[in-house]
Design a protein around this nucleic acid. Sequence first.
DNA 1: TAGGCGACGTCCATTGAATGAACGTAGCAC
DNA 2: GTGCTACGTTCATTCAATGGACGTCGCCTA
Lengths: 265, 265
Amino acid sequence: MPRTSQPGRSVSSRLLDVLFAFRPGHSRLTLADLTRETGLPHATVRRLALELVGAGALKRAPDGAFNVGIRLWQLGTLAPPSVPLRTAALPFMDDLHTALRQHVQLAVLEGTEAVLVERLPAGNAVDDMSRLGGRLPLHCSGVGKVLLAHAGPELMEQVVAQGLTAYTEHTVTDPARLLEQLDECRETGVAVVLQETTPGADSVATRVLDDEGKVVAALSVVVSAGSVDLRTLRPAVVASGLAVSRRLGWHPSAGVEEAQSDRSR
Amino acid sequence: MPRTSQPGRSVSSRLLDVLFAFRPGHSRLTLADLTRETGLPHATVRRLALELVGAGALKRAPDGAFNVGIRLWQLGTLAPPSVPLRTAALPFMDDLHTALRQHVQLAVLEGTEAVLVERLPAGNAVDDMSRLGGRLPLHCSGVGKVLLAHAGPELMEQVVAQGLTAYTEHTVTDPARLLEQLDECRETGVAVVLQETTPGADSVATRVLDDEGKVVAALSVVVSAGSVDLRTLRPAVVASGLAVSRRLGWHPSAGVEEAQSDRSR
DNA sequence: TAGGCGACGTCCATTGAATGAACGTAGCAC
DNA sequence: GTGCTACGTTCATTCAATGGACGTCGCCTA
């Protein structure tokens, strides 16, 4: 007797379960992997996965394993703020990168994390575990603090509720202390983070504003701790952030919008 | 009496129709747009689109329009050869970019077109209509000719069958002439294209090989016609292509694999 | 003010597409 | 041989997807 186990779930949600089983570090999945990951019967998973392959959303390797297809990648390039933001930011990020020879990162807010939407790595600089499409904590990364500072109190509550994980011995885990930092960041538009995400990595981050003065992204430079005087980085980062903002239509007269209550999931 | 019009189609295919209705230039779609685009009843489209929004695959703007969501973008970053290829190529592309101050592009083969998976634009250089995630014709772009030259005869037949569209007055539309160029490209590993895609834009492209000597991508520099002696570009492009290939595990002893019959998609 | 139009939202009787347990096969290990 | 895991295929059952119909809202023209 079929149709026995999981009623009440839509086909679409099951299909999306299969899709989103692909995560960083799980980008190559066999049928068995997908079955485990989704908890669905393997016959169901197989049907769905093959349908995705047929549409070009997934690709099947000769050995039977599944991969994300190029068509999905193309779809992803259409995601805002990717389109205008990346286009606007890349030239200035590149300038920063050329001038400083350090990691330059651009991140946006997604749920209770920061997602890296662009990244220019400096081969000889410190590695800070982040990668394109990767996620960084809001409470202890440069870009994270900038985004958190401008996102309104509800998000702060959520982040605190989830627990301020200590990634290093320098991570700020005291909510009151964090609030102070965010207040300062909101005033200055800059966050300086010293070895809070990764030991040996400092970061200077600033906000990127759209034409309405809303914070749509954060731009940061990550450097090896102590290798550079962060005070010299600050003007460069701020200037680049403003340049990107202007390119997005922002103008000083637009100011900076306070605490929007975004329902962005 | 419902269930009247389109039987024989799976839910999944309909869902994917909705997803893939988002294309470059159609990245922001209203419900009515989606209805037109997919040809499905608006009640159906609405249900599917909202389910996609619920999963974070799409995002709905306050005004009701739909956009591709960041989660899909993240999924896309997992698509091979995006992961290792982009990582391996970016540093060298950046070097090329810094040295030449011209557009630097990385493309892979997808169906009968080349897809731009990475792109460093030069603000002051000629604009050549391509964008990240965009598609270029195989028969008249630098990266396209490189990919086509190494893809085996079946693809060549397909491309010819589709017609060698003349994008400019310089586009090679004679199959015999194109074959000659591809033969040469296969020998030298380089394709030089003079104003075939866009008037005023020249391109020098080379292949990128993986550890098995298979051509997995093409790397090119696009310059304003006549602004640079292309013979000086050639060594730089070739060297960068080889550098990326080495980073992917290729070694001169692996050679270059001939004409694989790829069953992609 | 009335009437037309398009976009969007909601409802619900009908039914065919999705389902998944069962079975079969192939490869590997011991 | 026996046991295990991965993968493929089948098919009776049934419930979730369907889409025509109707309602609402805003906008335009007369």
